[in-house]
């Protein structure tokens, strides 16, 4: 037996997993395709779906209220160094330091300059660090509450051009931001999947 082998009896036992019954297999497929749980035994999936629905209603309600309200105190995202500073910027992220109620998620390099990403309870903003131009404002996606944090998940992808920007919290769930050449992507959930991808202006 070389170093890469297990005892054949152990290997056989290790691989001997009873196949799923037809009913269970069908249930798994139905739930995955419908992304809802028909079986009471999958109570956690149902609970998560309910939590996600509540988050959607709360976020949607706030957004609707903000959209319909004529009040001038509806926050406007604008890059202005004269605004009150409520966060402490990290090194290299100075344009967004003037944004009220925003905290920096991280910075990354584009072809022409560095970019900053800031997060508030409402949205994410991407700012060009050279011109302090606001490149994009993105509403937070609906997220399923999870304790999973995507640390180290993207390491194998980094040589391909994507850059790890940073982590931020939305509705108590930690999400990870990845920048590609053309978009800013949000990863999270129980299996660190792509939740949203927001295209950014093409590089000059």
């Amino acid at each position: 037996m070389n170093d890469d082998e297990l005892d054949p009896k152990v290997l056989a036992a290790l691989r001997d997993v009873a196949p799923a019954s037809d009913a269970l297999r069908n249930q798994h497929i139905a739930v995955a395709l419908g992304e809802s749980s028909p079986a009471s035994s999958r109570s956690r999936v149902k609970w998560l779906s309910a939590a996600a629905a509540i988050i959607v209603m709360l976020v949607g309600g706030n957004a609707l209220y903000a959209a319909l309200s004529p009040s001038s105190d509806t926050p406007t995202v604008a890059v202005s160094p004269n605004n009150s500073v409520t966060t402490v910027p990290v090194k290299g992220s100075t344009c967004g330091a003037g944004l009220t109620d925003y905290t920096v998620v991280g910075t990354y390099s584009s072809v022409s300059s560095a970019r900053e990403v800031w997060s508030s309870s409402r949205d994410l903003v991407v700012i060009d660090q050279t011109s302090c131009e606001l490149l994009g404002t993105f509403t937070h996606p609906t997220v399923v509450a999870t304790e999973k944090i995507c640390d180290g998940f993207f390491a194998p992808f980094e040589p391909g051009g994507a850059q790890w920007v940073g982590k931020y919290k939305d509705s108590g769930t930690t999400l990870t931001l990845i920048a590609t050449a053309t978009a800013i992507q949000i990863f999270g959930g129980p299996s660190c999947v792509l939740i949203a991808s927001h295209p950014l202006p093409a590089q000059p």
């Binding site: 269970l24 739930v31 995955a32 395709l33 992304e35 999936v45 129980p190 299996s191 999947v193």
Partner: peptide
């Protein structure tokens, strides 16, 4: 499914993990 069963050990929880994995795959 075998990977989930061998990592999780407990049968019922392994099925939950399999289910969550399938949902994630369909979404991703």
């Amino acid at each position: 499914r075998a990977v989930c069963h061998r990592i999780v050990i407990n049968k019922s929880d392994a099925e939950d993990a399999t289910q969550m994995a399938l949902i994630s795959i369909v979404r991703a």
